[in-house]
Design a protein around this nucleic acid. Structure first.
Length: 263
DNA sequence: CGGCATGTTTCGCC
DNA sequence: AGGCGAAACATGCC
């Protein structure tokens, strides 16, 4: 599930937490950074943000400010006040078992203490809870990226474009599905060397990042693209020109693309 | 049982 | 030094 779009949905859903004070915390220490359990209780949530695929909790306690980063891995999900903004799960369990909780955070405000204000549930345990995540190491946001920013991020890279788009240090927020989706709409083959793109192609790709991500966010997330999970699995005809879609492993990830219109 | 999965980190090789 | 690709991580599901 979790690409930048899902992180954005969760960031938005978590806004009601702003202004509340953390009363208690339970963590799975195998995925949680040292010190967080001690730091959180008594802290006030000053804001909830997002950078790339990371949701950031901005906290203050005793005039000290710190940031907790929520990383979702492949299967992590966020539940706010018992409400799950994203119910539909792809490539993950649809169950929600307590033993998969990695972070439970209660605030003083809710009516029932039984329901955590924030809960990070992750069956596969590839997610993380970090302290002071280094968001400066991330590339520009894919959802707002300009042609100039994209050019600076990729034109000196020799790896294929699909791989570079997935590198969060180059561009932040794109996951496997969204990377395939923007390449599909920009009509660029995932095999192209990043440094081989023309200025026109870079501009097209930046435009499609902004347009397609906005459209997919409106439709509910990274599974709502033209290359949705059903079409990826069925490997049917290209919705644009009818040519059979191709499935290949590129940079260790499954790429779905149309070899006719993506050049 | 084998294989696959929306992600990130680590290791070895240039 | 730093970019690159493959492997590792961890676990559920088809």
């Amino acid at each position: 599930m979790p690409e930048g779009l899902e992180a954005e949905i969760w960031r938005s859903a978590a806004q009601p937490l702003v202004g509340r004070r953390v009363s208690s915390v339970v963590v799975d220490e195998r995925v949680t950074a040292e010190g967080i359990v001690e730091l959180l209780p008594g802290a006030r949530i000053e804001g909830v943000g997002r950078r790339g695929k990371i949701v950031t909790l901005h906290l203050e306690r005793d005039a000290e400010r710190f940031v907790v980063g929520l990383h979702f891995g492949m299967t992590g999900r966020l539940v706010i006040d018992g409400e799950s903004p994203i119910e539909r799960l792809e490539y993950a369990s649809s169950a929600d078992r307590p033993e998969w909780d990695r972070l439970c955070l209660w605030t003083g405000c809710e009516a029932s203490r039984a329901v955590p204000a924030l809960r990070l549930n992750d069956p596969r345990r590839l997610g993380r809870v970090s302290l002071g995540p280094d968001t400066t190491a991330l590339g520009p946001e894919a959802s707002t990226i300009t042609a100039n920013e994209l050019s600076a991020a990729i034109t000196h890279r020799r790896a294929v474009i699909k791989t570079v788009l997935l590198d969060q240090h180059a561009v932040a927020g794109l996951g496997n599905l969204c990377a395939d989706e923007v390449l599909f709409h920009a009509a660029i083959s995932p095999h192209r060397g990043a440094d081989s793109l023309t200025d026109d192609e870079v501009e097209r790709l930046a435009d499609e990042c902004r347009m397609q991500l906005a459209a997919m966010l409106e439709r509910g997330g990274s599974t709502s693209g033209v290359l949705d999970p059903a079409l990826r699995a069925a490997l049917g005809a290209c919705p644009l020109d009818g040519h059979p879609l191709r499935r290949e492993t590129i940079g260790g990830r499954t790429a779905i693309w149309c070899s006719r219109h993506q050049r």
